[in-house]
């Protein structure tokens, strides 16, 4: 019982990470059909924002020394700010470009962010002790799980409820949903496009920052490539969830986390090294049977 519960927690916490990432990508895709590949690099930048630039082996912790009630808003603000900045400086100029062009631009932006970090911090991974109190086990119904795992799951659930309330209850949320469904029509009906897009970028950036906080305290490492893996999984989650569908992205994120965890548990030792091949195999199967994704967004369907 205890170990089964443990596996459930493992799956949920990994799924939470992917779900938060997928949500960040789906939000932007929803309003402007942009697959933002710079998202992973925003995650890395948020972690590095805690350090003072240096190429030494030992990290010089700067903002990372703040107490948690200042540290968390600071990182969220950095993520949101960086994301809004990328919209203002780069993506605003691609409003009329086709999605493929925007996607390439986002790749470009991702490289710029990554190499900027490389310049300031070198390629050497840095170690930081972020929110160290979370690195202790807690006992729940006979399962001893790291406190951080529990917090990750709780934070994700809170974010999901908060976001749902925001999208359903506020005027801004309504505008955002309208824009996601049919952007041109929404504009004609008086939705201020730039404001909605900016809002989506800010939310997406803050979600990237949340991932950065979780990854940073889980791994204790700042590495310029650290966002790449989560970004890839999150992107896959948005695709199998149905591009543009926020609920689909979250569902698929949790599903991917679960499949990856279960594969690690059930595969024989020799096959475990190829776990990701099995996970991606499952992704291909899903796409064969539901090419439009699990929950397809209404706005993205071809209208004949």
């Amino acid at each position: 019982m205890g170990s089964l519960l443990q596996i459930v927690f493992d799956a949920l916490s990994l799924g939470s990470l992917y779900a938060l990432g997928a949500l960040g990508i789906a939000l932007i895709f929803g309003v402007m059909r942009l697959v933002n590949f710079a998202h992973g690099d925003v995650i890395a930048a948020c972690v590095f924002a805690l350090l003072w630039p240096s190429v030494d082996a030992v990290a010089i912790v700067f903002a990372g020394n703040l107490p948690w009630f200042l540290l968390i808003p600071f990182v969220l603000a950095v993520g949101a700010g960086l994301s809004v900045l990328s919209e203002l400086v780069v993506f605003r100029r691609f409003r009329r470009a086709n999605p493929a062009t925007m996607m390439i631009a986002s790749f470009g932006l991702g490289f710029v962010i990554r190499y900027f970090l490389l310049m300031l911090f070198s390629s050497r991974p840095k170690s930081i002790s972020l929110l160290p109190t979370l690195s202790q086990p807690v006992e729940i119904l006979g399962a001893r799980i790291p406190l951080l795992q529990l917090i990750t799951i709780l934070v994700t659930v809170a974010v999901l409820f908060g976001l749902t309330a925001f999208l359903r209850r506020t005027r801004f949320g309504l505008e955002m949903r309208a824009a996601a469904e049919n952007f041109t029509m929404a504009r004609m009906l008086g939705v201020r496009a730039n404001r909605v897009i900016m809002g989506a970028f800010a939310l997406s950036g803050a979600l990237a920052a949340a991932i950065a906080l979780i990854l940073g305290s889980q791994t204790g490492t700042a590495n310029i490539m650290m966002g790449a893996n989560v970004m890839l999984m999150a992107f896959i989650a948005t695709v199998i969830g149905g591009m543009g569908s926020l609920a689909g992205a979250v569902l698929a994120g949790f599903l991917l986390g679960t499949v990856a965890t279960v594969m690690q548990v059930i595969l024989p030792p020799d096959a475990r090294a190829f776990r990701d091949a099995f996970v991606y195999g499952a992704v291909i199967l899903v796409l064969i049977f539901r090419p439009q994704g699990l929950l397809s967004a209404r706005g993205t369907k071809e209208r004949v």
């Binding site: 493992d10 990994l14 990470l17 790291p146 889980q218 791994t219 893996n229 990856a260 548990v265």
Partner: peptide
């Protein structure tokens, strides 16, 4: 790997 929770379990 972002998490090695399954391995630890």
């Amino acid at each position: 790997d972002a998490s090695i929770a399954a391995q630890i379990t």
